[in-house]
């Protein structure tokens, strides 16, 4: 039987997380279909149909699905699962919201945030903020899996396109409705898929301090992340938080500026390929995971970096 992959998208663009979840799904099942659920999202289905390894794309287009609320998504997906051996969703705020609801309705135990598929029923996943890695075997005939997408390569483009099949959208949820959203648009690469991430911590000191990171991020075409301390202090927005309870990133280059390196922050970035730490406290735990450490005042270093990269 095939796996069903939940497509992460914003109505217009198919997110790279989908192609990464697809790779995980193809490790679990020989075949995979992609489910595009949303409203006015036919373009997303088209993009999904050209990913390599996709058998077909299911498109559920309706107002009830516009904001990816867990209740209508579960209503849509639970009956579909009769035809699949696994549901695979990226471990985004959407996937983490609806997937357990689907799992409970199916009476199965979800395997959360997997980082490796060892066998179709056996997975590795981080526990204790990544301080331990657990290998679990699922005994459920039908599996519900969320994927830490940074741990999987993105599936490429296919030469041909898979067929798109339209399926009906469920009615709107009875007891819950979308009111509004405030989405941050920075014009920068997305934090979880950026090649370079520049992150600031409490040491950055203020919202204005974060503006210093922006100039550096511009030169490196980087996303801007933040530690929990910086978000709690109001220097950065919640969606910038990297860590156990925020986003998990694994870019080619991660530059930690004024971040001490609390365990829960390290959980969100320690799989980055190259880690640079800039901190004036040489005892800061961030230096233990850094490939390159610079013990210096960030307010001296940032202008120098900025100038050198500008040349």
């Amino acid at each position: 039987m095939a796996a069903l992959v939940f497509a992460e998208h914003d109505g217009k663009t198919l997110k790279e997380a989908t192609a990464r979840a697809l790779t995980a799904a193809l490790g679990i099942s020989g075949e995979a279909d992609i489910l595009v659920a949303g409203h006015d999202c036919a373009g997303v289905a088209e993009a999904a149909s050209s990913l390599a390894g996709v058998r077909k794309v299911l498109l559920a287009d309706g107002e009830s699905l516009a904001h990816h609320l867990a209740e209508p998504l579960a209503e849509l997906i639970v009956p579909l699962m009769a035809g699949y051996e696994a549901l695979v969703a990226p471990a985004t705020s959407t996937g983490r919201d609806f997937a357990p609801r689907v799992a409970a309705k199916l009476g199965v135990m979800q395997v959360s945030s997997i980082i490796e598929v060892l066998a179709p029923d056996t997975f590795r996943r981080p526990i204790y903020a990544g301080n331990a890695i657990e290998t679990v075997r699922s005994t459920d005939a039908r599996k519900v899996i969320t994927v830490q997408t940074t741990a999987f390569a993105a599936a490429g483009a296919a030469d041909t396109t898979a067929p798109v099949e339209e399926i009906p959208a469920p009615p709107p949820a009875k007891n819950i409705r979308f009111v509004s959203q405030q989405l941050t648009s920075s014009g920068r690469p997305e934090l979880t898929s950026a090649r370079v991430v520049v992150s600031g911590g409490r040491g950055v000191g203020s919202r204005e301090g974060f503006a210093l990171l922006e100039s550096l991020a511009d030169k490196l075409d980087a996303a801007i992340g933040a530690s929990r301390a910086a978000v709690d202090a109001g220097f950065a927005a919640n969606d910038q938080q990297v860590g156990q309870t925020g986003k998990v990133v694994a870019p080619e280059l991660y530059i930690a500026v004024g971040i001490s390196g609390a365990i829960q922050h390290l959980a969100g970035m320690k799989d980055s390929k190259v880690i640079v730490a800039i901190n004036k406290d040489e005892e800061a735990p961030i230096f233990q995971v850094a490939d390159y450490g610079l013990v210096a005042d960030l307010f001296d270093v940032l202008p120098q970096l900025d100038k050198a990269l500008g040349e």
Partner: peptide, 24 residues
């Protein structure tokens, strides 16, 4: 339990880094 825990391991350590002296 529906999930069988086969093994719990320490994560692979990162190779030790270096402290650099300057921005250059």
């Amino acid at each position: 339990p529906l999930l069988e825990v086969l093994k719990v391991e320490e994560p692979a350590p990162r190779k030790p880094g270096v402290i650099v002296d300057s921005v250059e």
